[in-house]
């Protein structure tokens, strides 16, 4: 049905769509000057600012890449720690009744609170340094990883466990040979959700209190009405988020080889 000819046609439509948006944008701002460049910069200005920000520190004290590096460092720290704590907890809650009884109620208490709601508390207790931000990201990542690992283990089919039992598997073998492999796709779903939540939490933390990072950069630029830098920052945030997600997909394809990953 969907032959190559058709596909090329639709690719051209997509291309035309992007070009139209860029042209309309350019025409409205740069040619017709419907809005001032300060409120809504044109595509040319944004591209120039992007190039400029690659090597200029002004006006917010660091280049685009050093802001990006600072943001990534904190995110990865909190994200990985959150995953390292959340995945085992989720598995333990799903597998062990005692852990379920004791930890689940506390976890359910924590769950409806968005990670970023902790920002003021942590800043007040621990200052505006790396630790507070990493802690907020840790919580965001932790919750998503726990929930999805828990669901993943609970999806194990009884019949698979019976087969394991028939062949004399120990309880640990049942967990690591049957339940955990079953849960892997859901664990990765959790990791992906957690990554998105971590990245958003980082931006929020940097907007509120920070002295470096992409969130800080766009917040500072707002104060001095540099909309061009804000948009460059937003695009960088989006792009990095998308790239991180792609990397995670690639890892998933490796780890879950042979399992039905889309």
């Amino acid at each position: 049905m969907r032959d190559d000819n058709r596909r090329n046609q639709y690719f051209l439509v997509s291309l035309a769509s992007v070009i139209t948006v860029l042209l309309v944008w350019y025409a409205c701002i740069d040619v017709l000057e419907l809005k001032s460049q300060i409120v809504f910069p044109g595509p040319v200005k944004i591209f120039r600012t992007f190039i400029l920000k690659l090597h200029t520190r002004s006006p917010d004290g660091a280049t685009l890449l050093s802001h990006l590096g600072a943001s990534l460092k904190v995110t990865m720290l909190g994200y990985l720690l959150g995953a390292a704590a959340g995945i085992p907890l989720g598995i333990a809650m799903a597998w062990n009744r005692l852990v379920d009884r004791l930890a689940k109620p506390l976890f359910d208490l924590l769950r409806p609170i968005p990670g970023i709601a902790w920002i003021p508390l942590f800043i007040l207790l621990f200052g505006i340094g790396t630790f507070s931000k990493a802690l907020v990201i840790f919580l965001s990542s932790f919750v998503a990883c726990t929930v999805n690992s828990f669901t993943g283990i609970r999806q194990t089919k009884d019949v698979h466990l019976w087969v394991g039992n028939v062949f004399g598997a120990t309880r640990n073998q049942l967990l690591f040979r049957i339940a955990v492999p079953t849960a892997i796709p859901m664990v990765f779903t959790g990791l992906r959700v957690a990554l998105g939540a971590s990245w958003a939490a980082l931006v929020a933390a940097e907007l509120l209190a920070s002295n470096v990072g992409l969130g800080y950069m766009i917040q500072q630029s707002r104060a001095i009405s540099r909309t061009d830098i804000i948009i460059v920052g937003m695009l960088a945030i989006g792009m990095v988020g998308a790239i991180l997600d792609k990397i995670l997909h690639a890892v998933e394809a490796r780890v879950a080889k042979g399992m039905n990953v889309r």
């Binding site: 970023i116 931006v203 992409l214 969130g215 630029s221 920052g233 945030i237 989006g238 792009m239």
Partner: peptide, 12 residues
């Protein structure tokens, strides 16, 4: 547009 977290739209 999608990968940009809504929070990053706050300043603009």
């Amino acid at each position: 547009v999608r990968p940009i977290p809504p929070i990053a739209w706050i300043p603009i």
